[in-house]
Design a protein around this nucleic acid. Structure first.
Length: 117
DNA sequence: CAAATGACGGGGT
DNA sequence: AACCCCGCCATTT
C-alpha cells in the first residue's frame, strides 16, 4: 500500500516488546524522511482498542513526547514499565532499549555489504 | 492567502 | 533541566 499512514503503522507494529524507537526513525524507516510529525499525527488517530504498540515510539533522545500532566504520558510510562523499559523519569535509555530495525530485504542487504568488500 | 498548530528534530543559552 | 528559537510538514484557522 502506498498510503503513508499504512506504512507508518506497519513499521510501528514491528517494534518488539521491550524496545523503543523515535518518531523520526519510524518516518525514515517508512520511507518518509523528515515526516516525524506525520508519525505523531497518525498515532494520535489510532482508535481506542488498537493493538498497535504506540507506546514504543518516543521523541528524539528518548524523551516521552507527552507533557507533564497528560494522561497519555502516564499511560505510556506504565505500558513501557510493564515490558521492562524504565521511563519513569520521562525519558528512556535508547542505548539499552533502542530498536535497531533489521533490513527489510535481508538478501539485498547481504548483497550491498558484499559490494563494499 | 497568511498565521497558527501540533504525539517532531536539533542547537543554543 | 528548562526554556527559547527555528526548520520542517500537513492541517486547520
Amino acid at each position: 500500500m502506498n498510503d503513508p499512514a499504512v506504512r507508518i503503522l506497519a513499521v510501528v507494529e514491528r517494534i518488539p516488546r521491550g524496545k523503543v524507537t523515535t518518531y523520526g526513525a519510524v518516518a525514515a524507516r517508512a520511507g518518509l524522511p523528515r515526516r516525524a510529525r506525520l508519525v505523531g499525527r497518525v498515532l494520535s488517530d489510532l482508535p481506542a482498542g488498537s493493538t498497535v504498540p504506540w507506546h514504543r515510539v518516543v521523541a528524539a533522545g528518548g524523551r516521552i513526547a507527552f507533557p507533564q500532566g497528560a494522561m497519555a504520558r502516564q499511560e505510556q510510562i506504565e505500558r513501557l514499565g510493564r515490558e521492562g523499559v524504565v521511563a519513569s523519569t520521562g525519558r528512556v535509555n535508547l542505548r539499552l532499549h533502542g530498536w535497531q530495525s533489521p533490513p527489510e530485504d535481508l538478501d539485498r542487504w547481504l548483497w550491498e555489504i558484499g559490494d563494499e568488500n
